[in-house]
Design a protein around this nucleic acid. Structure first.
Lengths: 231, 231
DNA sequence: CGGGATTTGTGCGTATGTATA
DNA sequence: TTATACATACGCACAAATCCC
């Protein structure tokens, strides 16, 4: 094992045990003295911590500890069930935003509407252990629903629509991919930029028709989540 | 602007215009001569390309160009359809490995077998545009199938089992997550470690029974892939 | 199989630039 | 302004992986 990886391991331990988020590591020169290596070697070691998102470099100041890395691992309780695919159905979702917006071209296309149409945008999220794990953006085609939907604030969106508007939504297709989070994703999900997220997009029609009523896009932090579908 | 960023920009242009995926860059020593800098500086420049996923390092061989710019964009043709979830069904898969192994504890558990049982391991992969996009590990519980399965070399594994053994496999459940690739994933999929992968794991029973016959685990590069399911 | 040539990976020492306090 | 800390760059040496004869 290269020396720099040894040092990276020790620094990793220090960060976990001795430092808190916001603290600064000893200077690279001091660390070089302490580990009896050249400063380049210390820098290479710190590169590893930077790559994993534990440390941030600040020229002229020092290398700052970003945060205590949780020991993330999957446990059975953290599993989402297949109904995550039915994104309007999450029973304990909460509303972050709800408003009428001008659809961008992609959303307009998914909803089969002309460019720059007005659509309803509702952003909900679901927490596990007090931390937001999934953020879902719902885009609803029919703005006349707004008079009712503006009162939606918690629970299952699809159930709400069913009850208040007497309309049943049916999932038509699902698109799924993994990607690295945007800055906004990082903020909403409270994660570092090095954790991949699952992005699930669905289009939903009014049951029995081909009328696309809803397009939804969800982002889920994937480090503590495993999507399980029983067939 | 630092010298290494200048060189990175030039190399980036070269990669886009002069090289194809799979090509190797000139050696670092040659590039150092060409740009009249130290080899360290060239390495620092190549680090930039590695970080953006354009180039992969191979110790002892050289620095390989990973992909062309058009690969950065999802295009409709690159979409997998939902039958990716039925991992034995990929019609144009090829076999990388096929052998009998001792199952580790996780695989044994999934197959409802005692620890350290023997199982059949078949690794297949699927290419798009000549590049491996998905690598699937199949683990089959019944080693008596080996006398037949050792002759499987291409096509659909489930079809082969159906035809040769007269056994129909049925998907029981699917687990799905996103994660960063291991070193082996990077090698097999020819990607950099900064691209997340989709991991899909299925258990399959013998149709009409509860006998778990197969556990499969697939890794798919997620940068050019979007999983589409029609309902 | 061995051995030598090539190429990337690691590490040291030194020097200088740049940002911060 | 000065001192400190990180950023860039050169040169040298050797290790480790790969390739080819």
């Amino acid at each position: 094992m290269p020396v720099y990886l040894d040092i990276a391991t020790q620094l990793d331990n220090d960060v976990r045990n001795k430092y808190q988020a916001g603290d600064y590591l000893p200077s690279e020169s001091q660390l070089a003295l302490r580990f009896n290596v050249n400063r380049h070697t210390v820098r290479r070691a710190i590169d590893e911590l930077v790559a994993t998102g534990m440390v941030q470099r600040h020229q002229g100041k020092g290398n700052m500890v970003l945060r205590q890395p949780h020991d993330y691992y999957l446990h059975a309780g953290a599993h989402f069930t297949g109904n995550l695919l039915e994104q309007g159905s999450l029973p304990r979702s909460e509303v972050l935003q709800a408003r009428v917006i001008i659809a961008n071209s992609k959303i307009a296309e998914r909803l089969n509407k002309p460019a720059e149409s007005k659509v309803i945008h509702i952003r909900t999220f679901r927490k596990i252990d007090g931390i937001p794990r999934t953020v879902i953006d719902h885009y609803l085609s029919d703005t006349t629903w707004w008079v009712v939907l503006k009162y939606f604030n918690t629970g299952s969106l699809h159930q709400f629509i069913n009850k208040e508007l007497n309309i049943e939504l049916q999932r038509k297709n699902t698109r799924l991919r993994a990607q690295m989070p945007t800055n906004e994703d990082c903020r909403l999900l409270q994660i570092n930029s090095n954790i991949p997220i699952l992005k699930i997009k669905t289009t939903n029609v009014i049951k029995g028709t081909n009328i696309v009523a809803e397009y939804s896009s969800s982002n889920t932090r994937s480090d503590v989540i495993e999507l399980v579908m029983e067939h």
